[in-house]
Amino acid sequence: MAGNIKIRAKSSNGVTTVKALMSHEMETGLRKDKATGEPIPAHFIQEVTGKWNDQVVMTAFWSGGVSKNPYLSFKFNGGEKGESVEISWVDNQGQSESGTAEIS
């Protein structure tokens, strides 16, 4: 279920733009299995943390209302080419994933 996080971070005029694509079902818990009629358990990312050089830039709290295989973009002041950006998430079942990228 959990896959890697694709991250792009680009610096331009002193501003770094981060774009990330996560791999997750983002199941709300409201859907039912069409074959069995059983509810599909909720399984979604609850918290996403974006760091630049190990310092937290943005923390996102999500519900199951964020689309499957979530896309997230955010921006911050600063960031030089070659510095690192890290994105990590934790879901409601305690699974987690993180990934890093170099600012280009």
Binding site: V57, M58, G65, S67
Partner: peptide, 20 residues
């Protein structure tokens, strides 16, 4: 409520995502 984003000191008020 779909999402809430806490912005750190260096963050610019900009977020983009996809919702249901």
């Amino acid at each position: 409520l779909i999402a809430s984003f806490d912005l750190g000191a260096d963050a610019i008020p900009f977020v983009s995502t996809r919702i249901k």
